[in-house]
């Protein structure tokens, strides 16, 4: 393989990995606080893509306004999801909450089939995003450049929120010990809502960028990216934002590089993430950057 092909794959993997990272952050933040796999997170991502589509195609509003509205509405949707499906079960056994998450995902997907139609929709991509730019023989679509940049900016903002603001401090407190945080007069419900809001906003941005990169919307489009990004979060060390980014990038690179170097494995692409997951869980169950937690006897 020559350098040019490698660079080509590198750029592709970087943009795919950045998208994974963006979605994985939502999983890791929710898990860090509620110890819950938010199975519906991938569906929130799908909603983001559809809302932007309706804004641009059906209501013909300017694309930046459509995107902003889609992000805002998806954020509300994510917060509403937590209120409706998870908050009533806050003190229930973990299995119940997980079943609720699976049920919520199920419901959103089926509602999407009814409301959005099961047939795929073509996402309108402006020339600016679709155009290919050539850098010394490497073709780069506009969107592939924008994705990593947007991810870096959002990550910087997120880290600033988590580490430099009072809300961020409260979030870290809740994720360390929810009961102690409550005793310290932290409004735990509010913090959880904010966590879902941030995660859903990132998922919406991820969904819109995904639609720009792969311009085809389907009601079930969130399932596979959702699962893979959860795996990315676990691989990186669940609860750690840096871990989610690392896991997302790692998964993006493994998927694309394996296919580039070993084309005969193309048919197994969707299994890479799961194999990676199982290897990491067996070798280092807490993930690459995770902390160890055991049950107290």
């Amino acid at each position: 393989m020559d350098l040019q092909t490698f660079l080509q794959q590198f750029v592709n993997a970087l943009s795919l990995g950045s998208l994974y990272a963006l979605i994985a952050i939502g999983y890791t933040m929710v898990y860090g606080i509620l110890r819950l796999i938010n199975f519906a997170h991938g569906d929130v991502f799908m909603i983001g893509g559809y809302l932007a589509f309706y804004g641009i195609s059906t209501f013909v509003i300017p694309w930046w306004l459509a995107v902003a509205l889609a992000i805002a509405l998806t954020t509300l949707f994510g917060v509403g999801l937590e209120r409706a499906a998870y908050r009533p079960l806050r003190d229930s056994p973990r299995i119940s909450i997980m079943i609720s998450a699976i049920g919520a995902s199920f419901l959103i997907e089926n509602l999407a089939i009814v409301l959005f139609d099961a047939r795929p929709k073509a996402f309108p991509v402006s020339d600016f995003f679709a155009a290919n730019y050539v850098f010394s023989g490497v073709y780069v679509a506009g969107i592939s450049l924008i994705i990593p940049l947007v991810t870096i900016v959002l990550l910087a903002v997120l880290l600033w929120i988590v580490h430099r603001t009072k809300t961020g401090m409260a979030m870290r407190a809740v994720s360390t010990d929810i009961d102690a945080a409550r005793l310290m007069a932290i409004d735990v419900d509010r913090i959880i809502s904010i966590t879902f809001a941030i995660g859903s906003a990132l998922a919406a941005i991820g969904g819109i960028m995904w639609a720009l990169k792969y311009p085809r919307l389907e009601p079930l489009m969130g399932i596979m990216p959702g699962l893979k990004c959860f795996i990315a979060a676990v691989v990186g060390g669940i609860g750690s934002i840096a871990g989610a980014v690392l896991g997302g990038l790692l998964l993006g690179f493994i998927e694309l590089m394996t296919i580039a170097f070993l084309p005969e494995l193309t048919g197994y692409k969707d299994a890479f993430a799961f194999v990676l997951l199982i290897v990491v869980l067996l070798v280092k169950p807490t993930g690459l950057l995770g902390k160890n937690q055991g049950e107290k006897v």
Binding site: V234, Y268, D270, A271, A273, F274, V275, L277, I278, L282
Partner: peptide, 24 residues
Amino acid sequence: VALRLRDDYLAIATLGFSEIIRVL
């Protein structure tokens, strides 16, 4: 292999095995 894990980790690992079987 999988039963060394617990709770949601077990859930996601078994789901992973199921998908690996399907891909195979």
